[in-house]
Simulated assay, not measured.
Amino acid sequence: MRSPTTRSHTTDASPFSPPPPRPLIVTADDALLDDLLRIAAAAGADIDVASDADSARAAWAPVPMVIVGEDQAAGLAHLAPPRRRDVHLVTRSRDDPAVWRHAVDLGAERVAVLPEDESWLADRIADATEGDGSSALVVGVIGGRGGAGSSVLATALALTACRRSLSTMLVDFDPLGGGLDLALGAEEAVGLRWPDLAGSRGRLSARALRGELPGKHGLTVLSWDRGDLLAVTPESAQAVLGAAQRACDLVVLDLPRKLDPAAEQAAAVCATVLLVVPAELRAVAAASRVAAALIPLVRDVRVVCRGPARARIGGPEVAAALELPLAAHMAAERRLTDHLDRGDPPGLHDRGPLASTSGRLLDDLLFEHQLSAP
């Protein structure tokens, strides 16, 4: 760490580059330290610890957040460290006027009283570690009718992004779709599925979520399993999507045609939803009902027309009938079913109509939302 009297709670630094600064706890109170480390662990954060005011002042400026225990507040205030944001003083007594004076002297934004403010403090630590914004582009894919190929396109779009070195998460919101881990060939991969996250509330750690989900070919996937659970709450969907947005550059959602409350929550987060519609009259009629449910939730719904045109119906005609913009007309993918049955995921390679269409869609979406690969 930065000083012999400052110790690190955990470390996962690369041997080739210094680790990013971590939130700093300043206390010599072992009982208070144990509580603060437990709160940090709940936030999924690595923490550095300084046991005295001198070492804390040396590490003061570069860290994203400073948590000062009441036992070190007077000594640190005496040293007059530079004013900065995200300084919080932690105490067990709300009634000690000296604590509040030291908080003013340190320029602390808040005095957190334990145990009442534990949840608040965990959220602030997570914000300091992961950021409090949601930077990822979220794209939904939904079928205009059953068997339209929306899950295939969602998987191909996500894998195309991975091939371009974008960190990507594929999230399955269709409990009756059989599980997107099957489409990815990751059904045997160890990791969490929706039933494991069905009780999620509040804020989830982005790093923990990404680390616990299964994946393959560089793509992380949150899938349904083949069990009995067929729904999650909107609160669970919100918690998972918030963590996914902080964890990735791109989040691709496979949405069900009939939106339940959790899927409605997910659709509302999307910057764009792609409505996959085969070039057929009945498919257009079915897609009109799906579009009617989407439009109040999503500001940007676009049509992806799939397959050979029949009865003189092509992509422009399908989009015009639905009164939506046309994102792409995708030709049929030969032997797609054979490839899927072999466990060869769609979009894994850069050849064929599916891969080329996914590439064009991704180009357009990234350009419009000003997201670039790292």
Results as ranks from 00 to 15, higher is better:
42 A>K: 12
43 A>M: 00
43 A>L: 08
45 A>I: 04
49 V>A: 09
54 D>A: 14
60 W>E: 04
61 A>N: 13
63 V>L: 07
64 P>H: 07
65 M>G: 00
65 M>W: 08
74 A>W: 01
74 A>K: 01
77 A>R: 02
77 A>E: 03
77 A>W: 14
78 H>I: 04
79 L>P: 05
80 A>M: 10
83 R>C: 09
87 V>K: 04
91 T>Y: 05
93 S>Y: 10
93 S>W: 05
94 R>L: 15
96 D>N: 15
99 V>W: 09
100 W>I: 05
103 A>M: 08
107 G>L: 14
109 E>A: 15
114 L>T: 12
115 P>L: 13
115 P>C: 06
116 E>K: 13
122 A>I: 02
124 R>S: 12
128 A>V: 01
130 E>M: 11
132 D>C: 14
133 G>R: 15
133 G>W: 15
138 V>M: 14
140 G>T: 10
142 I>C: 12
142 I>S: 00
144 G>S: 09
146 G>W: 06
146 G>K: 03
147 G>F: 07
148 A>L: 00
149 G>E: 03
149 G>R: 01
149 G>V: 02
149 G>W: 00
150 S>R: 02
151 S>W: 07
151 S>H: 05
154 A>C: 06
154 A>R: 08
156 A>S: 09
157 L>K: 10
157 L>T: 05
157 L>E: 11
158 A>M: 13
159 L>D: 02
159 L>G: 08
160 T>D: 13
160 T>M: 04
165 S>T: 07
168 T>R: 02
169 M>L: 10
171 V>F: 00
173 F>K: 04
174 D>E: 02
175 P>H: 03
178 G>R: 01
179 G>F: 06
